[in-house]
Nucleic acid binder design. Structure first.
Lengths: 204, 204, 204, 204
DNA sequence: GATGAATGAGAATTCATTCAT
DNA sequence: TATGAATGAATTCTCATTCAT
């Protein structure tokens, strides 16, 4: 019985979160209202607030879930491969696949970034998950180094640089697709990373 | 007379824009008010609205001005050097110098990014100036290729990748500085770029 | 069977009324909710509304019950004595004893007074019971007059004056105890009343 | 100029306070809205909030002003007389005159009393001014004692008892006028007080 | 009997914008 | 030019009440 209810409740929450995501994607972080979410979710304002105490609550849970999507896509795709190079490429591709499959995701993510300096809860979640994502890249590089596939590099900082590169590529492309061909830029990014990781004489 | 007035008017506008920048840096894009700007600028609400018809107007002019700052910093710093490699490194450093000198700049910039999908004016300005910045990088790479310093690469897409990498590095560092040492990450980024541009056999 | 149910129902109602009293004492008349009552009573919102049709219903029954407490305390304490003077003093003390024993009672009572002008049901109950209380005092004075203990006075109006005096003393003391020593003020009030009832020459 | 504005502003504030008083008198403390005040004052909601930051602010200022009215009425009326007895009687009458002239005043006052336990600002104001009023009575009694008019009594506590008696008389009468003739009760109260202050043998 | 999900009617506030001065 | 009083639309959040389970 309780399980039944908990299940149903969870379903409702996800439904609301999805509606929030859709609405923010459509109207932007600043101008959407709880009523928008309610309408999209097929509930009343009160109904939405029944599941999430405040608007901020909705947002915080949504952010967490969005990062999970990225995280999971990365893990799922990189797990398929054995070699560090293939794993790393799979990770980079994962970002782009997400951007293509969920056109609004990076849009909404940037909406959240803009809240970081003024909202500690958002800041915490972002910090936590950004670190997780970078660690995933770093671990892959480390395993490549261990296996002799990659040069011994400062894997931590390389990871930050790599994630930054590919994430911003995805973001800018989301913002104005006519700017560039994302597949080309992705290939280029991979080449650059690999040139560094596999090359003989390090320059830094 | 008219010139006198025009001058004074321009001064007022800049004063208001600076106030707007300060206020957004402090309170974030969503929660600042015209009164905040007025207070910061030492004017009344009506006074501010006298120089900019609407709140959006202020924002749009501000965004333009902010990109100019980045653009100018880049150009000024890269002009000092002759070799493409040094020029390129100077450009990358320019982003970081800006992030260090104006801690709020990327914060506010991301605030604006979040408006792109919902505000055509913001989108246009961003598209225009992002292209200018990327072109600056591309031109530098092209000149390096012409001079035989760099490998013949797809300079356009490399430029996108490079700008993305360094800009996101600056942004994430602005958001939480404890995440990494920006100088290390910058060095790493440079190495990666140079490894690609100067290396012999391409891998992708 | 029906009796059984009626008994159980009555118990539930009292339980809810007690919870309501506690909650109003804590949060004040304006800001308590049915859910507060439900939580305090260990029931759900729906459960509370099952026994009292509306929020107002709860309030009205509660007011009635509260006055009963005062009434009963007065009667119980005055019954112990024979002489009118002792009876009267016992009544005055009864108000103070109630204030001391149930610190919230006068607080909640004033909350209700504030509803009198806008709520006819509250007005009726208050009028009815205030009269009963004043009558108790009046009867005592009358008996004192009959027995030659007291001067022949306008017992009705004396009763109003006396009840007003002691009740407001109890109220103000409940609101801010540091204002005065309630026992001293009570003694003073008694002296004043007795000076009037027992004195030789009337002055007004 | 500034004076002009300050004057105009003060006038507006008083106008809003008056509207608030009228509205509370009509609808009660719990159910009036800012819009009600705005309508009564011939302003918009925003207009009201322009002069008082919050609803609570309005209320707090209103309470202060209401007590002032009572205070001033008392002082003005008691100043007319020389003898302590006449002064004291004038004070008691002042309460009743206020109740008669401003039928809503005690109604609204009780509304405020009900806020005391939950609103520190209200509590402070009430404490401060209740003390001032009681002190006025006490000072009068003291002067009567000094002049040999009154017996040497504990003037402080007598004052509390006297104020409580007359104030509650005014309040109950405001709530239901059919309960008693306020003039009779007032006369009775005076007799009682004087019987105590002027009588030969003290009993407490 | 009892629950608590869902509703929807407000309420207080906030703020861009207008406009008389 | 510049002010700031005034507006009113929009928004978040609260809660009594209803009702299916």
């Amino acid at each position: 019985m309780t399980t039944r209810n908990a299940e149903k409740e969870e379903k409702r929450r996800l439904q609301i979160l999805q509606a929030a995501y859709d609405v923010i994607a459509q109207k932007g972080y600043n101008s959407f209202t709880i009523e928008d979410i309610a309408n999209k979710a097929g509930l009343s304002k009160g109904g939405v607030l029944h599941y999430f105490k405040t608007k901020e609550d909705i947002l915080v849970y949504l952010l967490e879930q969005m990062y999970r999507v990225i995280e999971e896509t990365i893990k799922k795709r990189s797990q398929k491969y054995r070699s560090a190079e293939k794993k790393l490429k799979a990770i980079l591709i994962a970002f782009i696949v997400t951007a293509k499959g969920q056109p609004a995701l990076y849009t909404v993510l940037v909406d959240f970034w803009a809240q970081i300096p003024v909202n500690p809860r958002v800041q915490n979640i972002h910090a936590k998950i950004y670190r997780i994502i970078c660690d995933e890249v770093r671990t892959t590089i480390d395993s490549g180094i261990r296996d002799g596939e990659f040069q011994p590099v400062d894997s931590q900082n390389v990871a930050y640089a790599v994630v930054g590169m590919i994430m911003n590529a995805a973001i800018q492309w989301t913002f104005h697709r006519e700017l560039y061909n994302i597949d080309h830029v992705t290939k280029m990014s991979m080449s650059m990373v690999m040139a560094y990781l596999k090359k003989r004489g390090t320059s830094a």
